[in-house]
Design a binder for these strands. Sequence first.
RNA 1: GGCGGCAUAGCCAAGUGGUAAGGCAACGGUUUGCAAAACCGUCAUCCCCAGUUCGAGUCUGGGUGCCGCCUCCA
Length: 474
Amino acid sequence: MRVYDSLTRAEREFEPLHADHVGMYVCGMTVQDKPHIGHFVPFLTADIVRRYLEHKGYRVVHVQNFTDVDDKIIERARQEGTTPEAVAERNIQKYFEAARAMNLLPATHYPKATEHIPEIVALIDRLVERGHAYAAPNGDVYFRVRTFSAYGKLSGRNVDDLMSGARIEVGEEKEDPLDFALWKAAKPGEPQWPSPWGPGRPGWHIECSAMSMKYLGETFDMHGGGRDLIFPHHENELAQSEAATAKPFVRFWIHNGLLYTGGEKMSKSLGNFFLMEDLLQHYSAEELRFFLLSTHFRSQAEYSDARLEEARAAFQRIREAIARLQEARRSAGENTALVSEAGSDLRDTATQLQQEFFDALEHDFNTAAALGKVFEVVRHANRFVDAAPSGRDAAVVDAVLESFTEMLQLLGFFPDGLPAGADEVPAEVDALARKRQEARAARDWEAADSLRQEILARGWVVDDRPDGYRVKRK
RNA sequence: GGCGGCAUAGCCAAGUGGUAAGGCAACGGUUUGCAAAACCGUCAUCCCCAGUUCGAGUCUGGGUGCCGCCUCCA
């Protein structure tokens, strides 16, 4: 299994640190607001990594945090006249609603910053003891960047270049402009916790170090998040972690490309984001998942309605192929022994393509390539169904359906199994369809067409077929 | 200015030095009372220049054009 690591800027063979499990930490949301689709790129990436690792037999300890105290949450609470806790809790619930809808596997742990203050304080204390951090007179504690000689190795910067952009905010008492806050002294009316340096709250970066090390150990396998977190967040996280432990922090840094829209990065500050709860009104979780997986996670993808419509059309092709196979299966009966030449060809091709599907995921979780293989199976299956519509090759059809199930479920589609071929048609609609069929038999096209309109008005579509008709959901 | 990324058909997009996956659209066909849907088929030599190599979309150097990070951001 080959995995690209942002730190070394190369891919290499993945071997877990521990024989019995893989440790994976994903930077979660700062819960100042509801989740948008951009947030779900790293979460979905982690979901795929998780599923693939489990498919390979690994146990994954999957940690995804919530940053539930920071300037923006405090500000939001102030505007709304509520508490930061209430803002955070509300948005955490929104996250879980969207995550469930999207069929994301639940993480092993969802640590919150506010519930890990002792661990955070202990880690800061360790840094102070080692001389990597210092308390300023105002009660802030800063990381002394120049004591960590490897600073900049993740984002590819050197401290001297950074100097030009670095600045000291009003009220900060840093020794060096590059230093960053580990602990922020309490301000009136803000959430605060006691510490050896006085009351205050954690800085942004330190929580991820404290919490990841708590649940995964001082060195762990994979750390994920958006590319935009590389600097300063992950650079700082790495620095303070390795400064504290003198051990390598993360073995594989997995950064996803950002989602764009209208040619611009989708972001909170630009206000051009699409909320998950809104998108889920218009598109199915499957369609959204398909859209996100049809681009490699490290590339930047462009979100637009047109892209989503394409995803819908493409995914529909897969659903249709499955439905056709299911129909073929029903007509094939129980004669599983008979296998035609076309059937055995299909079976061989499907087996081969499924192997190529796994190979694609084996190579840096290439879901886009993997989906390409699914479509190749679709085409071969369709050809087969076209060529042999009579009841034959039940065993082959079963095998291909099983193959679709394995591939699609590994990508997180159809958690409850493949969709049943035929929808439950309401008696009323069924009666209309029957009447229409009678009208057609009587060559009364006008009546047939108006009945079709009535059925359509009830949300169903009739397809005429050589052997009759089929009613399906619009 | 510093650091990094990207450039593949009308659009999206994969590509691990060995002769360009897949999807959408379009077009042709099958099917149909008409239609829709569906299915099948057709559809590129990879931004430019030079180099390395038996062989380059893939590697190297030089251009050009986009984009990101350097401030909160998934």
